[in-house]
Design a protein around this nucleic acid. Sequence first.
DNA 1: GCGACTCTGTACCATTTCGTACAAAAGTTG
DNA 2: CAACTTTTGTACGAAATGGTACAGAGTCGC
Lengths: 226, 226
Amino acid sequence: MTNQNISTFKNHLLCALAPEDRRLLAPSLERMQLNLRQSLEKAHQPINFVYFFEEGLGSVVASKEGGSTVEVGLFGRDGMTGTSLVQGDTESPFDCFVQMGGSALRISADNLQEAMSQSAALTELLMRYARTLGIQATYTALANGQIKLEERLARWILMVHDRVNGDSFYVTHEFLAMMLGVRRPGVTVALQILETKHFIKSQRGEILVQDRTGLMHLCQGTYGPA
Amino acid sequence: MTNQNISTFKNHLLCALAPEDRRLLAPSLERMQLNLRQSLEKAHQPINFVYFFEEGLGSVVASKEGGSTVEVGLFGRDGMTGTSLVQGDTESPFDCFVQMGGSALRISADNLQEAMSQSAALTELLMRYARTLGIQATYTALANGQIKLEERLARWILMVHDRVNGDSFYVTHEFLAMMLGVRRPGVTVALQILETKHFIKSQRGEILVQDRTGLMHLCQGTYGPA
DNA sequence: GCGACTCTGTACCATTTCGTACAAAAGTTG
DNA sequence: CAACTTTTGTACGAAATGGTACAGAGTCGC
């Protein structure tokens, strides 16, 4: 990667690498713009590139026959796509796309695998992240099975808030409904409830987080061990 | 492990090992009886032993504050406990217990880690299984969010059927309700629906699978890519 | 065989969520 | 500003699920 000061990676994974591992990856990394809704992985299709997010959000979504979907993974500059690859598979059973635009450093699957074969520390770091994302999905299974829409919404808002600059972000009810796999008017009402409790402020296309603690309590431990 | 013909492992993972990897593990393996409801891992506590199931079923369950639970992982002789350990952690955020009694070969965490450090093939095999279990949990997230109780029940029955000898197995509505995280009478009614459709026969404490294909269709693709 | 216990079937009402439709509000474009 | 699009708010009945209670059926131990 040209002209990149390797000590200034914005991606947390790249940041956590030892200098020699950074040097190992750097030449293969290429900065890419992430456009809203851009597909990063398609279910059951070979993964060609892996993206280390710098800015923006990515979603992993699972869908049932008939098309309805739920988000099962969410990441920003704390993470990456392609954890399937990291875990030794060539593809994922789920789709992955850009939920909020931004930028990422991407690397080809081949180059990543090559680098992993050369550095156990790199492999271990990425494996650990793959595990983290898996645990997140497992908590999502718990949340989907056990808590109410308004509580799942609180959980989702927290997860996004963690991965975004500042206390507000932009998203429509329609989109939220897709991610949670619920009815759009249901989201509208649930947001009103959270607003009534003064946990958030919600305007057209925007959500402002006001009380993280309140949101946390709503999640009843499904937010994860964090 | 004494008196164990290493070519006759009943556990699919152990079975899939190359002879030298079997020889590596065999001395550390110890056959244990698995008693109903026995705890194999406790959330957020160090894992001391890993169990390769030969007979019986194990469940990974997640619970929210207040105690209600959902099953997020299910395995039999196809799998093992301790995938967290395999993935480099010392503990899991979820509980694991024996759902149907049987037997397992167990190994201490230390011995397993030692063996993994000596055999890349062993490590890769167990990693692959850890990934499989993660994917199963992710499909559970999809199922919990998108399909109805009677359909989730169908999915659960299929998963158990895959891991059990014969077409019938023993389980109470109460227990099923716990695993699915729903109300007990809801299970009773859902089972009646499946029975009406002639997909299963249900008697006191027993479920007999009659039509896998029918059950599969009900799952709407949440059963997994299988 | 009797009593105790476990498991299942059923009922009732409350709550949550769905499907759908439509109107109001906010933004965009010409 | 007018027309159009997008987003949000609201309403209504239907379906799914929850909480709870209780009766009947099956099983077990004595």
